[in-house]
Amino acid sequence: MSDSPRPVTDQHALPQAVLWDMDGTLVDTEPYWFAAEFALVAEHSGSWSHDQARSLVGSDLHESARRLRTEGGVDLTIDEIIGDLLGRVVEQFRAAVPWRPGARELLTATRAAGVPCALVTMSWKVLADELVALLPEGTFDAVVTGDSVKRGKPAPDPYLEAARLLSVDPARCVALEDSTTGLTSALAAGVPTVGIPCVVELEARPGLVRVASLEGRDPAWLAAVAAGAASDEGASTPLVR
């Protein structure tokens, strides 16, 4: 963890940590997952819809693979489906990294303010490592991936594990999420949560602050979120695809 002093805003203390989802929050890789799913299903002469693809956003990869088998007609084992999807997404990610607006800038500012950060993603380590390698060393003090927890999102386990690794109180952190599955996980762990819709709508919930984008956001705003003083801007509409 950083030994830098942790400044205090005029009104609120900075959060003990910021817990970042990856796909759809830091990087707009959801279209990569969609493309991988459709290609895999087509190769097995199955059928798959955009509604089905959207319903998997933020899900544990075992659940995604199970549904691709039972609903999409993919005649492979769960592990084979996961490996195939990850390979396709990693290949697309290496070709182009689609940062979400304001995400990288807020991550940089948060680290500069001395606030620890964790990556909390249902993608597996092989993909998370691709993102981590693009950032300055030490950007994330902890990384929790879908293959490192027994129960993935929407269970609270991934966020509770991140808080444990950082030795922080979940209630004094902030989580950043783009999916219903992800925000359900964070809120169940007791973490004040920001929802930034990407491909699915996010309904209002206690403890959730919805914003259209992270552009122009700073650590002082994160402090307000942690203190329950930030306004829900009602940004429930995802980006048009």
Score class of each variant (00 low, 15 high):
86 L>K: 10
148 S>F: 08
102 G>I: 08
187 L>F: 05
141 D>Q: 05
139 T>V: 04
156 P>Q: 13
144 V>Y: 13
168 V>H: 00
203 E>M: 05
93 F>G: 00
107 L>W: 05
87 G>E: 00
138 G>Y: 11
111 R>A: 11
175 A>K: 00
159 Y>V: 04
159 Y>D: 09
185 S>G: 11
176 L>A: 02
108 T>A: 15
186 A>H: 04
149 V>R: 10
123 S>E: 05
185 S>D: 11
206 P>W: 10
106 L>V: 06
158 P>S: 12
167 S>R: 14
184 T>M: 12
201 E>F: 06
176 L>K: 02
135 L>G: 08
105 E>L: 08
160 L>T: 04
210 R>T: 00
72 G>M: 10
188 A>Y: 10
121 T>C: 12
125 K>L: 12
68 L>T: 06
198 C>H: 13
150 K>A: 15
99 W>L: 11
102 G>S: 12
111 R>T: 06
102 G>E: 09
71 E>A: 14
97 V>A: 09
152 G>H: 12
162 A>W: 10
141 D>F: 02
78 I>R: 15
146 G>H: 12
163 A>I: 04
72 G>R: 14
198 C>I: 03
125 K>A: 13
200 V>T: 12
71 E>I: 14
85 L>P: 02
140 F>R: 03
159 Y>N: 07
117 C>M: 05
106 L>E: 03
190 G>F: 05
103 A>H: 05
117 C>Y: 08
98 P>W: 03
206 P>D: 09
171 A>S: 15
95 A>M: 10
159 Y>I: 07
130 E>T: 00
83 G>M: 01
148 S>I: 10
81 I>D: 00
104 R>H: 14
68 L>W: 12
95 A>V: 04
105 E>D: 14
172 R>L: 13
170 P>M: 09
